[in-house]
Design a protein around this nucleic acid. Structure first.
Lengths: 343, 343
DNA sequence: TAGAACTATGTTAGCGCTAACATGGTAGCG
DNA sequence: CGCTACCATGTTAGCGCTAACATAGTTCTA
């Protein structure tokens, strides 16, 4: 038999005050409260004041979930990075977060662990949250992921590297950065140079830098040996890398490390071993982390403007969200060779 | 006149496939699709298979916003930290994220910039998202914030420090850590010890460590001078701190820094100045960052298990969310004095 | 063998908000 | 004064999903 005798169904939802209650307290309709809070310029000043008082009075906290469902869009920005262990991404995130939060957007952070399948899963989840935009590190995605994003009509920003992007793109040319450092090492007179990277299949941007490095060395008719470590960048791994170079390439006079963590680890390890840098071995890195600038000798590295990259990316996305013309779909933030005393 | 002549209203919402379409494709009702996806054990195996095929076929991506509204709860965990610039919080976040993501919860990250008003705003926003739980760094909150949280019935986890908590608490005793390091410096024979901190009003946990430090020194009838820098921890600030100590306290033989960033910056600066560490001046830090363990001499510091702290915190919260008894409302993760060669 | 207990699925009624359209009032204009 | 324009507010109808209750079929139990 049907639910004929029973009283009303048990209530659902939380017991938080709702728009309706604010509306009753202010003597207006719910939609006026909604407008007073979201588009205050469309409500008479006096009404608005009355509404805001009512909000305080009943202790109203807007239910953003309901708002997002009704408007089919949330003020979330999905941000996907490969790792939180790497200071580089943290700095980009900081640039993004500051810019987006100032405009009332909330960042939804996802971490792929350098796994494109995880990226796909994250994108799925984030689409489910009706995000306003997606910012992701890198230009490589799985086919499944591309399938999802192909149907999506909100801004997509790819950061870190430059190239053929889905939509918007802010980054730098890693291959050129690799060339730049290789040329520097050649200019310093080094002829036996080893490149040391870590997991270049996953950290493929380091692989692109190696490609640039090799191109320059081969153009100078030199070998471009590569040592690939099996752990991602860390001081420990860098120390191990130095040991491998000393063992495997006794004639090596310079090491081009894939990043500053490795390079600094090697530099500090060299000191412990009593090696002179750059006298016995020159060491170069990539990233321009603070750390490398505070060791003696100061590390030669390539600085990239990461917080700026995050900020610029956020600004382009915001422009798109404001329906303003996007000035540049692709933006090169460049890099700077910082010559220290380690080369 | 009313909308009598017009056809149906223009459609709203996105054009993504919905549960209904999956249900039609699979020949079941929408609720069965919902169950097949969210509580598969409540659906017949064969039906489930048919539903999953239909999901793939129509390219369905669940609308999590709608789900959250209907169920009055999202799978969001709000995480509030004072800063992303400090590696310490990043590590805690990593521990939280790994544990929560493995269980299908998504982290909503907020950054207060050490401002309790910002914390209140973030809490408001996060409550609006129907988060499943809140994890926040620290035990200090504004009255407005306490007002909001007082009415809230979901788990609240306060991390980093130990004390009188709102609900759950995982952390360590900072005052005791300060005492511990002070005792170590005394045991090393130092009598003229300066504490150097940065913005102790905002980074009040460093202030608590100083309180412990002072307590021990005063018990030994020694002065406990304090130098407070106006920038938060960084290698640069540490170098400046060393200069200030050398200028202001020429007799100082040891410096207890509020954190490893400062201490390492000072240590590297001392080397540039040609000072022997610890011969001319001893240097101690706090945090046990990798960095300090790779300089020569190795930094004496106090290690706290931050990633573990994040993991433990997440596990307690998950236990609560699973309606399992919480084993400990308060958990002390402790700390370890790591004696290097810098003292 | 009646009925309790359980399994698998369906029906109904919202969750709290906002887009779209409607309406009444005031101002501007020739 | 009739017209359009605009401003401030209201009414209606969902957004896409799931909690609560309903129901039909099956198995178990005394």
């Amino acid at each position: 038999m049907s639910n004929s005798n029973a009283g009303p169904r048990r209530r659902r939802g939380s017991d938080q005050p709702t728009l309706k209650q604010v509306a009753d307290a202010a003597g207006v309709s719910p939609i006026t409260v909604s407008r007073a809070l979201n588009t205050p310029e469309r409500v008479n000043e006096e009404t608005r004041k009355r509404v805001l008082e009512a909000v305080d009075q009943v202790g109203y906290v807007p239910n953003l979930v309901a708002g997002s469902l009704a408007s089919a869009s949330s003020r979330f920005i999905a941000v996907i990075v490969p790792s939180l262990a790497n200071a580089v991404f943290i700095e980009v995130i900081r640039g993004l977060q500051e810019t987006f939060e100032a405009r009332g957007y909330q960042i939804l952070l996802g971490n792929t662990d350098y796994d494109l399948d995880r990226e796909y899963q994250l994108v799925r989840t984030f689409l489910g949250w009706s995000c306003s935009a997606l910012v992701t590190a890198g230009l490589r995605h799985s086919d499944a992921c591309l399938g999802l994003l192909g149907h999506w009509d909100k801004p997509i920003m790819e950061v870190m590297e430059l190239g053929e992007a889905l939509d918007l793109n802010v980054g730098l040319d890693h291959q050129e950065a690799g060339r730049c450092m290789a040329r520097h090492l050649l200019a310093r007179g080094h002829r036996s140079i080893v490149y040391v990277g870590a997991c270049l299949d996953r950290d493929y941007r380091a692989g692109m830098r190696f490609a640039g490095h090799r191109e320059v060395l081969e153009a100078a008719c030199l070998d471009a040996p590569l040592i690939e470590l099996d752990r991602l960048g860390s001081l420990e791994a860098g120390a191990a890398g130095l040991d491998q170079v000393l063992g495997g390439f006794p004639g090596a006079r310079a090491i081009h490390f894939a990043n500053d963590d490795l390079a600094t680890g090697a530099l500090l390890h060299a000191q412990r071993l009593g090696l002179r840098v750059p006298g016995d071995i020159a060491i170069a890195g990539f990233n321009g982390l603070t750390l490398g600038q505070h060791v003696t000798p100061r590390l030669t590295t390539i600085q990239s403007p990461r917080e700026t990259m995050g900020r610029l990316a956020a600004e382009q996305v915001l422009r798109r969200l404001d329906h303003q013309p996007v000035t540049q779909r692709q933006q090169d933030v460049g890099f700077t060779l910082m010559v220290g005393q380690s080369t």
